[in-house]
Amino acid sequence: MDQLARPALPFSGHDAVEAYLSDGYDRVVGMSSRFAAAICARLLRLQTEEGLKGPIAEIGAFEGRFFIALAHALEEGEIALALDIFSWPDPGVEQRFEANCDRHGIGPERRRTIKGDAGAMAPADLLAQADGDRLRFIHIDGEHSRVALGRDLALATACLAEGGLIVLDDMLHPGYPTLMVAVQAYLEANPDIVPLCIIDRETIVGATKFVLCQRTWFERYQTRLLDIFKDFVWPLGADFEPHWCLVLSQDTRLAEIV
């Protein structure tokens, strides 16, 4: 789709993120959407407004497209952790990741690159990379299997700060239909964690994301989201039986029933 014909994006809350999304995001190889990046950057701003601070992490940083957007949304002194095996599709991906970060303004002082399998990492080791601070935002975009997602979710939950958010990529993707099985099992085993919102897909490649939060923070976040993203709220929402949450979409129309 031509850039001029794209639907409007929500304001990310950060001038640096806006500049990157308008000129840079599409030039970094990756599969996440600009719509989701704008929303997640605004969620980071919302956390700051709510008094939350600290490091963030992405599991599955690849060449850095989404990671750079998140890192631009951090406050002074906060760091972003990039976890990846950095061997797919070839060993040069780590070098491309580092070059993309440098090219788009995320210098070594603002990021930490961790090469390895997140699923094999102990929570204490990940927290040590964050100087002992718990993570306020974790984006999971690692290996797309039920087992791997379950491990990544366990790691994220163990490292999550009070009020933190976990964002899951490629949910409801036609290429990975069993990921939802892992999510449902996780939610049933962790009743203190609930879906906060669904970020609708931009394309099949830029697929749906689920945003999870602690149950005690749900109403606090939802109240703000209803105001911040009022132009992007799909009216019917999402039914997780019995939990209900927002759906944020660029297309908020309802089906016509005649």
Rank of each mutant, 00 (worst) to 15 (best):
M1A: 13
P7R: 08
L9D: 07
L9Y: 08
P10K: 05
S12M: 03
G13W: 09
H14R: 12
A16V: 11
V17N: 05
V17F: 06
A19I: 08
A19T: 11
Y20C: 13
Y20H: 12
D23A: 15
D23T: 11
G24D: 14
Y25D: 07
D26N: 15
M31V: 08
F35E: 05
F35N: 04
I39P: 03
I39Y: 02
L44C: 06
R45D: 13
Q47L: 07
Q47R: 04
E50R: 15
L52M: 10
E58G: 01
A61H: 01
A61K: 01
F62I: 00
E63Y: 06
E63A: 08
F66E: 00
I68T: 09
L74Q: 02
E75R: 10
E76C: 01
L81M: 02
L81H: 01
L81D: 00
A82V: 01
A82T: 01
L83I: 09
S87I: 13
S87A: 15
W88C: 07
W88Q: 12
D90A: 09
D90G: 05
E94L: 12
Q95R: 13
Q95E: 15
R96A: 07
E98K: 10
A99I: 00
A99H: 05
N100M: 03
C101S: 06
D102Q: 09
G107Q: 06
P108R: 03
E109Y: 05
R110E: 14
R110G: 10
R111N: 10
R112L: 07
T113A: 05
I114R: 05
I114Q: 07
K115E: 13
G116H: 10
D117K: 07
A120M: 13
M121K: 08
L126I: 02
L126E: 00
L126W: 05
Q129R: 12
D133E: 15
R134G: 04
L135W: 07
L135P: 06
R136A: 08
R136V: 04
H139R: 07
H139E: 06
D141Q: 12
D141L: 09
G142R: 11
E143V: 14
E143S: 13
D152V: 09
L153I: 10
L155I: 14
T157D: 14
L160F: 12
L160K: 09
A161H: 11
G163V: 11
L168F: 08
D170L: 01
L172R: 08
P174W: 06
G175W: 05
L179W: 00
L179A: 01
L187P: 04
L187S: 02
E188I: 10
A189Y: 03
P195R: 08
L196N: 03
L196D: 08
C197L: 13
E202W: 10
V205S: 12
A207R: 01
K209G: 02
F210C: 11
F210H: 09
L212M: 06
L212S: 03
C213Y: 08
F218T: 07
R220L: 12
Y221M: 09
Q222W: 09
R224F: 11
R224Y: 07
R224E: 14
L226R: 15
L226N: 15
D227C: 07
I228F: 11
F232K: 03
W234R: 14
L236Y: 10
P242T: 11
P242M: 02
P242I: 02
W244R: 14
S249R: 03
S249V: 02
Q250I: 02
D251T: 06
T252Q: 06
T252E: 05
R253G: 10
R253M: 07
E256S: 12
E256K: 11
I257N: 09
